[in-house]
Design a binder for these strands. Sequence first.
DNA 1: TATTGTTATACTCTATAACTATA
DNA 2: TATAGTTATAGAGTATAACAATA
Lengths: 173, 173
Amino acid sequence: MPDATPLDPEQLAAYFALMEVGNLLQHAVDQQLRDEGGLSFIQFQILAVLSEAAGGRGRMTDVADRLVHSRSGLTYQVSLLAEAGLVAKEASAEDERGVVVTLTAQGRDLLDRVMPGHIEVVQRVLFTPLSDRDVAELGDVLGRIRAHMRTLPPRSAALRRRRGEASRASDKR
Amino acid sequence: MPDATPLDPEQLAAYFALMEVGNLLQHAVDQQLRDEGGLSFIQFQILAVLSEAAGGRGRMTDVADRLVHSRSGLTYQVSLLAEAGLVAKEASAEDERGVVVTLTAQGRDLLDRVMPGHIEVVQRVLFTPLSDRDVAELGDVLGRIRAHMRTLPPRSAALRRRRGEASRASDKR
DNA sequence: TATTGTTATACTCTATAACTATA
DNA sequence: TATAGTTATAGAGTATAACAATA
């Protein structure tokens, strides 16, 4: 192990635990979603994000930023969902470049159908060993981390930025 | 949204936050690892798990279970690492079926070289908005969740189990 | 008979770059 | 000139099933 570490062992352990827990949990729910709904976890996330949004709709780039997708990757996934009739795409009224994705009734139904089993898995795998107080603490800390992360440059901006930097040859740091 | 929910809103929010934070963080560190070490996050995890283990070595199945991999997937990744000279594979002494993977000096060097930048990213993305107390709490709760998850049937066992059940036709539930 | 690990294969997902169209 | 989104393409990763070898 390296020596000059600005990250103390407690932080490193928390970081590794976070990654392991996240991966194991994702794997468990992915299994459930495929078995019961024919959905990948990412497709479920897209549906869930839309269902939380006002009007069950959102713009492509906004969704991509929240779900760690390249825009082409999101196009791909949303196309699959649209083929399955779970979402619908329309041109944005305000900005004709934009595309608004809307959850269909069918999509909402599928979400409702999948949710109970989904929640059962999350309950069993994630929350069983936690007290109510633990859950509150966890939610609080993770919420603050998420808020912080959202202040960092988003993925779509990072791409544009990088392209921009490359073309500005005079911008040597 | 479904109605009969045994998962209260606070739990659901914590669950979604966990997934979003995990994905965003993984994306950030994956970028750093590829840029500075030519490693995917999973390859890094394999090296890290080995470096933590006694003697810098471990058995294939054990590593696979910790890292949420099918065994064939681990074979693939370990092969890549072995080609790159970062790990070495030997037949197990006790169990001739088994394969023991060992971190090479080169692998340790790469880990050391990549760690400072890695830790910088984790520090910046994950820990910036947290107090020491937050870190302690987070580590504690996540550690307990991980311990709980490890008591659940591991991936390799699940596969065997499933195969076993299918062959036992009398085992109708 | 069960378990370890590998191989072959097929598939899913993702990102990059080039492109179109609108702001 | 910059941004939204799509497409084509190519590559990485994963899992499944069949297999060989050992317990």
